[in-house]
Nucleic acid binder design. Structure first.
Lengths: 150, 150
DNA sequence: TAAGATTGAAGCATCAATCTTG
DNA sequence: CAAGATTGATGCTTCAATCTTA
């Protein structure tokens, strides 16, 4: 009969993952907000757009990328448009689709945010060896694709 | 001049951590909700109470443990009390403090939830070796304590 | 009829102010 | 005055219903 502490190792590990995520996300978001006036979510949106083919992302795709519903993204974009960082661009070939695109101000803000975020991350991961970082990267990559099955 | 892909390795890794967290948290919460009618947050609260000394946790301590504000915990407890899973117990020595405690129904629900959660986690971490799980555990443990400093 | 996006209602969290007790 | 908890106002998200276009 295994001890509870051994049977519940996964519960503890997952709990630590949640805690690590919460701590980091809070800290990094607060830093971005303080340093360039946008929360982590906005940064993620700006980054996704900038990396996309043609610098355009549809609402549905963006929703998947940032782990929100399409309804959530609609309103998120509304706020970012009000802040002048992004625009909606209608798709010429399919009028159901509207793309999100960066404004010049959005691209500039992303540049600022990237500098801050890089610095914050090197601080947060200070003390981690290259090998550990590679392990972390590999583990997270597998985990995010882990079988949703059943 | 380093390539962007190498300079931004940390950004990618952190992005994967966020994505892994979101995917897992969503899946595990949905499973708990379906299997025993409580979301992941409630499970975490029940677990923290059950593990606490005397099976009692003050609002402030609970708030830290589940990464919420005390205001958030007050309302979370309100809902869980309404569901009959926990109770508030006044502290006899300091009347500012109120503890959260499990009801019998709460303890029973926790038992159900634990069984489900253990099964879900072994599925999610299926394919990970013992060594990888130990690495993951160690990395998460260090990360959640990583320097909040300046 | 389905796919993409938006909207109203509702849920859950934060923030700041407040109340109570130490 | 400080610490613990609660409350009102507010923000962001989800869910389900709706509108438009394919």
């Amino acid at each position: 009969m295994p001890r509870a502490s051994s049977r519940d190792a996964l519960i503890t590990t997952f709990g630590r993952l949640v805690e690590a995520h919460d701590v980091l996300a809070r800290r990094l978001s607060a830093s971005l907000e303080l340093g360039c006036g946008i929360p982590l979510t906005w940064f993620e949106v700006l980054l996704r757009i900038s990396r996309a083919d043609q610098q355009l992302v549809s609402m549905t795709v963006l929703a998947e990328q940032v782990s929100l519903t399409t309804g959530g993204v609609t309103r998120l974009l509304d706020r970012m448009i009000a802040a002048g960082l992004v625009t909606r661009v209608p798709c010429p070939s399919d009028r159901r689709i509207s793309y999100a695109a960066l404004t010049e101000a959005g691209a500039a803000r992303l540049t600022e945010a990237l500098a801050i975020h890089r610095k914050d991350l090197s601080r947060s991961f200070d003390g981690f060896s290259a090998i550990e970082l590679a392990q972390l990267d590999g583990l997270m990559d597998r985990l995010r694709h882990a079988t949703p099955e059943q």
